[in-house]
Design a protein around this nucleic acid. Structure first.
Length: 484
DNA sequence: CGTGTTTGACCAGCGC
DNA sequence: GCGCTGGTCAAACACG
């Protein structure tokens, strides 16, 4: 897998900017270059997208970079210095002697200082982002309050009108009025529900359901379920949408299941029509009653491709290894839903999301609204070469904290990041942004920040994501992957 | 014995 | 209404 994607899976701040420098000696540096040995062999290892960064599952298999980050700091510098000095022959290193050595040391010192500066900048930007998040939260609260006030005002107006009509007609208006008011109230609460936690919605939905879903364990987000009390059609559709939101991940793996850090229990297997490979059903067993489930199935066309579809939001704290996936899927689902929800005020539609959130990855990530369920599909099966053609020059790699391809990390993971999720490392090269002359992590973050403020589409998308996820935070429990 | 997997049965939605 | 399909349940089974 790592071969195919050519990713450096370490999540440290050490972005490997120099990987594509001409003459760069990867063997010496220990760096994993972006286009590593692409498709050298078929994939035979389990995809471990979300292992803890310390595990470096991709790296360990080949092109290994086992050194701790401090050692890699050194590697970076080596990469810079030895590229030119030693490319030709390892034996000729003594030629230049002290001069070269001094230069190397000074350069090393300079780069270390730069690194520190970047770290500081990173911290600063993180702070900014969290402040933006909190500002957004307060604004959101304000908005909700205003909406409530507006709704109550409308109620009052309608009530007044009805009273007038009643006086005129002296008829059955009173009953209508009585019915109308609760509806209005419902609409207000719905807005809150929509922007609230998917989990809460799920719970609310479940609590209404009858039939065999009696125990938490057997609670189901079964898409087919129609057993909802006829409280309000709109609410039903909202809840149904929340329940059905899915994030699908396509990845090459010979293993029966990708390792995403969560514990799963298989509860069923079915042969799906049109696919000789069975589809397996898993539910999260990290907490009793966790509604998250996933389906795992091999692609009919290419059986080396594993399609994993996640649904639901965890209702329990997650281990770091599982955070990234959970956050990503949750954020993706939230993004998706916020784009399809009435409460989004038409802010976004799925296509807009696809273009905005995943601008560099039209082939890699798609958002489908036409499918039975709103689904974000992340295609991780493409080679890094293909990626590079879609991306700006790969001067810098996204230090995605988990073993996932860049697009996955950049796009959806960003949503998680900006929603206040506690992620090990900052991210992001906003792909549509002009690449900095000398790309650096700081530049990347700056570019992302600039994009937030400059690009209204980007801002809108982020706002929606933050909105939905922050609402989750507000309502939720310990969960939602962002126990920061 | 506890936990997880397998697998046939059951249920609901959907299309005809 | 009927059959197909997807999703889930739960008893039986396997395993440590």
């Amino acid at each position: 897998m790592d071969r195919g994607w050519g990713l450096t899976l370490d999540s440290s701040d050490q972005v490997e900017f120099f990987a594509n420098k001409p003459g760069f000696d990867r063997r010496r540096s220990g760096l994993v270059m972006f286009p590593s040995r692409v498709e050298e062999t078929p994939e035979h290892r389990e995809v471990d997208f979300f292992a803890e960064k310390t595990k470096k599952p991709f790296v360990k298999n080949e092109d290994s970079n086992p050194e701790p980050s401090a050692a890699r700091d050194f590697d970076v510098n080596i990469g810079l210095q030895l590229v030119t000095a030693n490319t030709g022959s390892d034996q000729s290193a003594v030629d230049d002697g002290e001069g070269e050595d001094k230069r190397a040391k000074s350069e090393l010192a300079r780069l270390q200082a730069e690194l520190e500066r970047m770290n500081v900048e990173n911290q600063r930007l993180r702070g900014m982002l969290s402040q933006v998040s909190s500002n957004h939260a307060s604004l959101k609260m304000h908005l909700v309050t205003m909406m409530q006030q507006k709704a109550s005002t409308q109620e009052q107006e309608i009530a007044d009108r009805k009273c007038e009509d009643e006086r005129k007609d002296n008829g059955g208006g009173a009953r209508q009025f009585l019915e109308l008011v609760p509806e209005q109230s419902n609409s207000v609460s719905e807005e809150r529900t929509v922007s609230g936690s998917p989990q809460n919605n799920l719970d609310a939905t479940r609590s209404k359901r009858t039939g065999r879903e009696e125990s938490p364990e057997s609670e189901s987000w079964a898409p087919g379920s129609k057993r909802l009390n006829p409280t309000n059609a709109n609410q039903q559709s909202i809840e149904a949408t929340m329940r059905k939101a899915r994030v699908s991940v396509r990845a090459r793996s010979e293993a029966p299941m990708i390792s995403d850090g969560c514990q799963w229990r298989k509860y069923g297997q079915k042969m799906a029509k049109g696919n000789p490979c069975p589809r397996a059903y898993y539910r999260c067993t990290m907490a009793v009653g966790c509604p998250v489930r996933k389906q795992v199935q091999r692609c009919a066309e290419d059986r080396s491709i594993l399609i994993t579809t996640y649904e639901g939001t965890h209702n329990h704290p997650l281990p770091p290894a599982a955070m990234a996936m959970a956050s990503t899927t949750s954020a993706a689902a939230s993004m998706l839903l916020s784009g399809s929800m009435p409460s989004a005020d038409g802010l976004m539609n799925p296509n807009f999301l696809a273009r905005t959130i995943l601008p560099c990855s039209s082939n890699m990530a798609t958002i489908s609204a036409s499918a039975p369920f709103p689904t974000v599909t992340l295609d991780l099966t493409q080679s890094p070469n293909a990626l590079q053609y879609q991306r700006p020059p790969p001067h810098f790699q996204v230090p995605f904290p988990v073993s996932a391809p860049p697009v996955f990390g950049q796009a959806l993971y960003n949503q998680s990041k900006f929603s206040g999720l506690q992620m090990p490392k900052p991210v992001n090269d906003a792909p549509q942004l002009p690449a900095p002359a000398q790309p650096s992590f700081t530049d990347t973050l700056s570019a992302a920040t600039a994009a937030i403020t400059a690009d209204p589409n980007f801002t809108a998308a982020l706002a929606a994501a933050i909105s939905s996820i922050m609402a989750n935070n507000g309502n939720h429990t310990p969960n939602n992957n962002n126990n920061s």
